[in-house]
Amino acid sequence: MFILITGGSKSGKSLMAENIISEYEGKKYYIATMEPFTADAKEAISRHRKMRRGKGFETVEKYKDIEEADIPDGSVVLLECMGNLCANEMFSGQYKSDVAEKIVTGIRKLADRQKLMIVVTNQVGEDGITYADETMEYIRNLGMINSALSKYADVVIESVYGIPLVLKEKRNGE
């Protein structure tokens, strides 16, 4: 089972993901993609840690090369968030042009082996502002990743201030 959850900033995506996961049995892994570089990042990480406390997650930090994540087969996995993973692949280390493909392949490889995998992603292309080339490339990559993962997903949900809008739901046999 693969679920993609999207939405704007602070729109309740994480809580939604954690609520779905809490209904599943099995070993739970949280793949954290945010590098604690800035004060903002540190604050976000500590806020999310607090939210997950007591929910039985083992945290695995993986800032890029998601295909190499060390997660046993048949687990329940939450990855957060795609926006950071994409930025890390693009901007930390050598620039790569095939980031979207690399990430999508990595996620599929990982998700195929799990009981449940939820990826929390972001909507970043809706403010109508034209940014510098590399930021536009980031918006394009994340859009491509979201579209590709959505095609593969069993369920796609947009969180609107904590209210789930089901954008896609595969029924049996489809």
Partner: peptide
């Protein structure tokens, strides 16, 4: 206002996130 690029300016980031929180 939360579905765009994270703003460079701290005050704009705080505003954007607070709109999300208030919305929830």
């Amino acid at each position: 206002v939360g579905s765009g690029i994270v703003p460079m300016e701290k005050s704009e980031r705080v505003y954007r996130e607070n709109v999300g929180r208030a919305g929830c």
